[in-house]
């Protein structure tokens, strides 16, 4: 049975929140630190009940909330998994998050799930499939979603650049973009393009949220390669690209993702504050 949320939807402020992971849940619940907003992975709350839901019920009261999916496999040639979609709908109905997002990637074929954000070919066929799938998900959830550009370590021979591909999907679907600036930078190094060209290819007005994260630069390879490890501070290059992004798209709600070697809550909040200061400076310029 679906349970409608008892709480009104809180707008997400144009400040930087954090991706809330298990090690920090107890402290955030107890201390209610002044974090502008929280994002959680949808699949971590797919269970029927238990401690995670009890925590999220309370967090939902105290903070604006975004649900970020990693397992829907939007870009698979397989049909969407109806059970996954039902569980996501139940979660959305229960918590009424401000944003619901997923990735422009695939993760399953012929019924086998690889539980990763795998790269799509930048082809018209893949773009058309994504547009149909986004429509299907929005229909099933009864609300719009955001879609995120992913990092990648290989690219297929393609009919268009990644930025053109992402722009085409958001233009044709009418879907807002969750622009992961770290992913743009990682891919620019891994595939040798200018990340500023990428930003210029994305239409103004489509970006609703921005992600920032740390990465790991590999050494000893015949060409540069960065792993999107989410295990460190945001790099100087990504901060610089972030400033260019908010200059182009305007200040947007921003999130710090840190999923491995998770630091103290204080460190995470400080990193989010760094992004908020940049947003405020940008807002002052826009005013």
């Amino acid at each position: 049975m679906r349970r409608a949320s008892q709480h009104p939807v809180k707008p997400i402020p144009v400040r930087a929140g954090i991706g809330l992971r298990a090690p920090h849940v107890t402290r955030v619940l107890a201390e209610k630190p002044p974090i502008p907003w929280l994002e959680v992975h949808s699949e971590n709350y797919f269970a029927a009940g238990g401690a995670a839901h009890a925590a999220l019920e309370q967090l939902r009261v105290d903070y604006p909330l975004s649900l970020h999916g990693v397992g829907l496999s939007l870009g698979s040639a397989d049909p969407l998994d109806p059970a996954h979609l039902r569980r996501l709908r139940a979660l959305v109905d229960r918590y009424q998050p401000t944003f619901v997002s997923e990735h422009l990637s695939w993760g399953a074929i012929d019924g086998t799930h690889w539980n990763d954000l795998l790269p799509l070919p930048h082809t018209r066929e893949a773009a058309a499939l994504l547009v149909d799938r986004i429509d299907e998900v929005e229909e099933a959830l009864g609300r719009p979603i955001l879609v995120e550009n992913v990092s990648s370590y290989l690219r297929f021979h393609a009919e268009m650049s990644e930025a053109e591909f992402v722009a085409e999907v958001v233009r044709r679907s009418g879907c807002a973009l969750l622009l992961d600036v770290n992913n743009v930078y990682v891919n620019s190094v891994n595939h040798g393009f200018d990340p500023s060209d990428y930003l210029r290819a994305i239409p103004i007005g489509v970006v609703a949220e921005i992600h920032l994260a740390g990465h790991t630069r590999k050494t000893g390879l015949p060409e540069p390669l960065i792993i999107d490890s989410h295990d460190d501070f945001v790099s100087a290059e990504v901060w610089a690209l972030y400033e260019r992004a908010i200059e182009r798209f305007g200040p947007r709600p921003t999130l710090i993702e840190w999923d491995a070697r998770i630091p103290s809550l204080e460190t995470l909040i400080e990193e989010a504050d760094r992004a908020t200061r940049r947003l405020e400076a940008c807002r002052a310029e826009f005013a």
Binding site: L154, R155, H157
Partner: peptide, 16 residues
């Protein structure tokens, strides 16, 4: 189908 560059397609697949 992969533009593997100097690292090569097999090594890139290995990351995944």
């Amino acid at each position: 189908a992969i533009d593997g560059g100097a690292i090569g397609a097999s090594a890139r697949l290995g990351i995944y």
